[in-house]
């Protein structure tokens, strides 16, 4: 592992050395990023659109997963990383001390997790409370007609069938957001299972990726699984309305996501690392999250730094309008302003 990293690093350095002259005469050069798969569609759209405006911007993004993005930005092998969940304090201090720099979190768009299900004979969206969701995933609620589920769905006759539970087996930001929510609404979940990108689910079976979970839910009758909203929208899956802190059953859509973020803006910390699951306020959908671009405050390569800075300003401005078409919720204005001021603070050496 270590040797390999060194080898790769030295290769990168070698190739940098070769191209030094070229990159000076041609401002920008190739900018490399890596990380979360979830925002990949909008990021690639952004890089594409931005290249039309700024001919010098050649940004290459590899969607290798949030964990990989954090690892690579920590190693300094990429110019920026991307992650669905903010880095924790330990990872940040590791990255900062290793690169003698300061890592910044720039939120880009909002994504969410929905509960999709396959109950033959039921065509409408069912209602699920936090108690029901945590009960199902803890294995305590075993049947669809359990009183805890049934009482929230007075108009629907739920079947007397066992619930088959599906989860994401590959480490993912989706699982992080989902378990973050469960950890907030259920103490038992927090102590027994925990909050992470990979957890040991007490019950059910795992599918690989959103498509794997969808596959399980589609082919198993009376099953339930969690996937990203865009995925549910693109595949016309049925998904549940989830009860928020106000007691309303909210359908996950772009408005209810932006609302969840908007109503948490007052509490957002200066570095913008905030969890917006179980968000307060009317109309907000409770299982959602920002997705972030990770970048160092001091940009050592002046050309790359300049392009990245301009790109981020553009993405947070004009770029946000592409979000809706691709199924992401744009950031609330207040967060855009805060994110833009962080981008302005990026120093170019």
């Amino acid at each position: 592992m270590k040797l390999l990293t060194v080898l790769l690093l030295s290769l990168t350095l070698l190739s940098c050395g070769d191209k030094k002259d070229v990159s000076v005469s041609k401002p920008g050069g190739q900018i490399n990023g890596a990380g979360a798969t979830f925002p990949y569609p909008i990021y690639s759209k952004w890089f594409n659109e931005y290249a039309k405006i700024n001919k010098d911007a050649k940004i290459n993004y590899q969607s290798i997963g949030s964990g990989g993005g954090i690892k690579q930005i920590t190693e300094g092998t990429v110019d920026f990383g991307a992650s669905d969940s903010p880095m924790n304090d330990e990872d940040i201090s590791k990255a900062n001390s290793k690169n003698n720099n300061k890592i910044l979190h720039i939120p880009t768009v909002i994504g969410s997790v929905v509960l999709t299900y396959n109950i033959p004979g039921i065509d409408k969206n069912i209602n699920l409370s936090s108690e029901a969701i945590s009960g199902i995933y803890l294995g305590k609620i075993k049947k669809w007609n359990d009183p805890i589920i049934q009482k929230e769905n007075p108009d629907t006759k739920l079947p007397d069938k066992e619930i088959i539970v599906a989860y994401r087996t590959d480490g993912s930001g989706t699982t992080f957001v989902f378990t973050d929510y469960l950890g907030k609404v259920s103490d038992e979940w927090k102590t027994k299972v925990g909050v992470a990108k990979d957890v040991k689910f007490p019950i059910g079976q795992g599918g690989k990726g959103n498509e794997g979970v969808t596959g399980l839910v589609k082919q198993l009758e009376y099953s339930v699984g969690y996937v990203e909203l865009i995925y549910a929208l693109q595949n016309n899956l049925k998904y549940a309305n989830v009860k928020n802190t106000e007691g309303e059953f909210v359908s996950p859509n772009l408005e209810s996501l932006t609302k969840a973020a908007e109503q948490s803006v007052n509490e957002i910390p200066a570095d913008l690392r905030q969890s917006i699951t179980n968000a307060k306020g009317k109309g907000s959908y409770p299982i959602s999250s920002y997705t972030y671009i990770l970048i160092y405050e001091n940009q050592k390569d002046a050309n790359k730094g300049k392009v990245m800075k301009e790109f981020l300003q553009w993405a947070l401005g004009d770029g946000e309008k592409f979000a809706k078409d691709l199924g992401y919720a744009p950031l609330p204005d207040a967060v855009v302003q805060k994110a833009k001021s962080i981008v302005t603070g990026i120093k170019i050496q």
Binding site: G65, S66, G67, G171, A196, K197
Partner: peptide, 12 residues
């Protein structure tokens, strides 16, 4: 092989 493929990329 599956657990390595599934968890390695996101293992923290």
């Amino acid at each position: 092989a599956s657990v390595i493929a599934n968890e390695f990329a996101e293992a923290s």
